Lab assay of single mutants.
Amino acid sequence: MDVFMKGLSKAKEGVVAAAEKTKQGVAEAAGKTKEGVLYVGSKTKEGVVHGVATVAEKTKEQVTNVGGAVVTGVTAVAQKTVEGAGSIAAATGFVKKDQLGKNEEGAPQEGILEDMPVDPDNEAYEMPSEEGYQDYEPEA
């Protein structure tokens, strides 16, 4: 019985440690998101679009440190934060509304985080759909 109880105690310690790591990862992701939003706020009209992409990228980098179902929630929060940063930029006159959601080359930025393969159960990952990809044929 002692062996059984000791095993359960060790398992509990492992769960607590994993929860603490997840909590730490979420806190880091939130900190990076805040950094990115402050970065966007300090940019001029020309830099705002690039700044919004930076927020998304920093958040995406930190999301990889967070495991399990938390990833889905962090990704949703990050996307809403990026959308909010863009709205703030438009409201303050840093950028025109028609410039939001495009990178410096004018290509749409939507789907940055949505296409990231995420499995809350950590069982399997699927690649994003290939609808947006084109076949590449090298020139002879």
Rank of each mutant, 00 (worst) to 15 (best):
L113S: 14
V52Q: 01
L38G: 01
D98R: 08
E130N: 07
T59A: 15
E123P: 15
A27P: 00
T22M: 15
G7K: 12
D2T: 15
T33M: 13
S42I: 07
M5L: 00
V16S: 15
E57N: 08
M5C: 04
G31M: 14
V77A: 14
V49P: 07
G41K: 03
A107G: 13
L113N: 01
G86W: 09
L113G: 05
E137N: 07
D115N: 08
M5D: 00
A107H: 12
T22I: 04
G93H: 12
Q134E: 01
G67R: 13
G67Y: 06
D119G: 14
D2K: 03
N103H: 08
S129F: 10
K43H: 04
K34V: 10
Q62A: 12
A78L: 13
A27R: 05
T92A: 03
K6T: 05
M127I: 08
V82Y: 10
E104L: 12
I88R: 08
G51R: 09
V70C: 03
Y125A: 11
A29C: 15
A78D: 04
A89V: 12
D121A: 11
A29R: 01
Q79N: 09
D98W: 10
A56E: 02
V71G: 03
E126D: 07
V16K: 09
V15Y: 06
A17F: 10
G84Q: 14
T44F: 12
Y39C: 06
G106R: 05
A27L: 04
K10S: 09
V95Q: 01
E126S: 06
E131D: 14
K21F: 12
T81M: 04
T59P: 01
V48I: 10
Y133M: 06
G51I: 02
V95Y: 13
V70F: 05
K96G: 10
A91E: 09
G14Q: 07
Q99H: 15
K60W: 09
A53Y: 14
V71T: 02
A124M: 02
G36P: 01
V26H: 00
V70W: 13
A76C: 11
T75H: 13
V15Q: 00
Y133D: 02
Y125I: 15
V70R: 10
N65Q: 02
S129N: 03
E137Q: 11
T64D: 11
V63K: 01
G25V: 09
E13Q: 07
V26R: 00
A124I: 07
T92N: 11
E114D: 15
Q79R: 07
E13H: 03
T92F: 15
A30R: 08
G68Y: 11
V52G: 01
G25D: 05
G73Y: 05
E57A: 07
A56H: 13
A27Y: 14
V40S: 00
A89I: 13
T72W: 02
V66R: 07
I88E: 04
V77Y: 06
T92H: 03
Y125L: 14
L38S: 09
V15G: 00
T59Y: 02
E123I: 14
F4I: 10
K96R: 14
Q99Y: 12
E35A: 06
M1S: 01
G73V: 10
A11V: 13
T72L: 06
K10E: 02
G86Y: 08
V95W: 10
N65F: 13
A85F: 11
Q79G: 06
G25Q: 14
E130L: 11
A85K: 04
T64A: 13
E35G: 01
T59N: 02
